[in-house]
């Protein structure tokens, strides 16, 4: 083993000397870190493309499901709790970002145990976020029957009142009918036995009647693709975090004596995942 280590260290020294021979370094940063920055820049453009497409389609549609109606369910049977669950998910990412900063700081001090400890906490945060997202998707697909091409979340264009109840039974004479306002959201339920969509009938203020229409088709596709793409980034981030945490624990980076630069690079990526979530959170859940 001793010989192998010597060879590795020797190669490392040679690399250090030859990595930059263009005189004064303009950016004073290693190749790996600089390229991580440029990768993140290109990735930012990919996400921006997705989010701008969301904006353009939302602008092009006369109605759009109201997010605090769509995302108002949380585990353990919590309903009508708008945005609470996604706020919790945001906190998970913020906390894991902070633990990542701590891991990088311990790396600068060449403190192996500190790096591994804070990286493990970061991994737990990432896995927690993925678990929450899995629950959210399961709820939207399994319970609310939203798919890439079907969006049961509609929005009223006019004021009016319903002619039948949730189960499709017409209101009896003298019974108080349920009213709604323009801009309010509804969810079209699916009958569990027949698999039929239960689109409620309504009468609008101007006397015209109609049935609940499905919401803009693009909503489901955009939601699953954009949160899925972000979730995939989180997933690959967790995989890389595990690999680098194991390398750090094995003492590999101790030999490199470069202040745990690998940890710093995966740290940049991990913060970027948190950064993207700030904007996904903004356009999908807050606005």
């Amino acid at each position: 083993m001793a010989t192998v280590d010597t060879v590795l260290e020797h190669e490392h020294d040679v690399q250090q000397g030859d990595a930059w021979d263009g005189g004064k370094e303009p950016f004073k940063v290693s190749y790996g870190k600089l390229m991580m920055w440029y990768f993140l820049l290109s990735d930012a453009f990919t996400f921006a493309g997705f989010l701008i497409a969301y904006g353009a389609l939302r602008f092009s549609s006369p109605t759009w499901p109201v997010p605090d109606f769509v995302f108002s369910t949380a585990p353990f049977g919590i309903h009508h709790a708008p945005l609470i669950f996604v706020t919790f998910m945001s906190f998970l990412l913020i906390i894991s970002s902070v633990t990542m900063v701590r891991a990088v700081q311990e790396g600068h001090r060449e403190n192996k145990n500190g790096v591994v400890f804070w990286m493990i906490l970061t991994i737990i945060g990432g896995l927690g976020f993925l678990g929450c997202q899995a629950w959210e998707w399961t709820n939207l697909i399994g319970t609310e029957h939203m798919t890439v091409s079907t969006n049961p979340f509609g929005t009223h264009l006019v004021n009016g009142e319903y002619l039948d109840d949730d189960h499709g039974h017409s209101y009896k004479d003298g019974e108080a009918r349920e009213t709604f306002k323009a801009g309010s959201s509804y969810l079209i339920h699916k009958d569990h036995d027949t698999g039929q969509w239960l689109q409620r009938r309504y009468i609008a203020e101007d006397g015209t009647t109609g049935v609940q229409a499905f919401g803009p088709k693009a909503f489901g596709g955009l939601f699953f693709f954009i949160t899925g793409f972000h979730g995939f980034h989180v997933f690959s981030g967790v995989v890389f975090l595990i690999i680098i945490a194991m390398n750090a624990a094995s003492g590999l980076y101790v030999k490199r004596r470069n202040g745990y630069e690998m940890v710093e690079k995966i740290g940049l990526y991990w913060h970027f995942v948190d950064l993207v979530w700030v904007f996904v959170f903004l356009v999908f859940y807050l606005l």
Partner: peptide, 25 residues
């Protein structure tokens, strides 16, 4: 939107240490 941009600024400049990098980078 303004608060989200502030969060983005804070993550990039503090957590990702952009504040301590060379201006050109």
């Amino acid at each position: 939107i303004v608060l989200s941009l502030y969060k983005a600024y804070f993550i990039i400049f503090e957590f990702m240490h952009m504040k301590y990098e060379v201006k050109g980078l």
